[in-house]
Simulated assay, not measured.
Amino acid sequence: MAGSSKTNRKEGNVPVEHECPLNLLPRDIWVRIATKVASNSIHDLFNMQASCKVFLDAASSEVVYQHVTMRVIPLMSFLFYLDRPERRFIDRCVEAGNVDAILRQGLTEYFWIARRGIGMELLSRA
């Protein structure tokens, strides 16, 4: 039996006892779970993404970014994230249609950066 599993690994076939049990649930269930996690805590979402490939795939869905909570990110901090990963995260939330991220980005554009046109467009979207 040990020889057969060794042969399977060489061929690229993974024996049933070595498959990830997380793959037993469909992806949409994991996306729903990731959405609940994201709506409660960004830190937990990042921990979920870092834990395994199944969670990374589910937590990277557009639906998850629509529901991410922004309450732990101070409003003023949007100005300090210009070239950092946080900026890309916030931009992805805005692109996904996260209302809180759109509102914060609109306020930043309108009041602090003084780009009134873009700011008003984002505020009306929110």
Rank of each mutant, 00 (worst) to 15 (best):
M1R: 12
Q105V: 07
I73M: 02
V68P: 01
K10L: 15
P26A: 03
H43E: 09
E62K: 14
D83S: 08
A58H: 03
N40Y: 05
C52S: 11
N47P: 01
I73P: 02
V16C: 08
M76F: 08
Y65N: 02
V64R: 01
R87H: 13
Y110Q: 06
E121L: 12
A101S: 09
F55D: 03
F111R: 13
F80S: 14
F111G: 04
F78S: 03
G117Y: 11
N98G: 01
P21E: 02
R116W: 11
V37F: 08
E19G: 01
L107T: 08
L79F: 05
R88H: 10
L122N: 02
R125A: 09
I33H: 02
V31H: 00
V63G: 04
N23M: 12
V63Q: 11
W30P: 00
G97R: 10
R32Q: 12
I102G: 01
A38V: 00
V99I: 15
S60I: 09
Q66S: 07
L22I: 06
V31Y: 01
D57H: 14
W112M: 15
K53V: 11
L122A: 03
R88K: 12
F46E: 05
S5Y: 14
E95F: 11
S41R: 05
R27E: 14
L123R: 08
K6R: 15
V31F: 03
Y65C: 06
V72G: 05
Y65D: 02
M120F: 11
L56D: 07
K53Q: 15
T7A: 15
Q49V: 03
F80E: 12
I73Q: 03
D83L: 06
F46N: 00
A34N: 00
Y65R: 07
V63N: 08
L75V: 09
R88P: 01
A101L: 09
I73S: 00
V68R: 00
V68A: 00
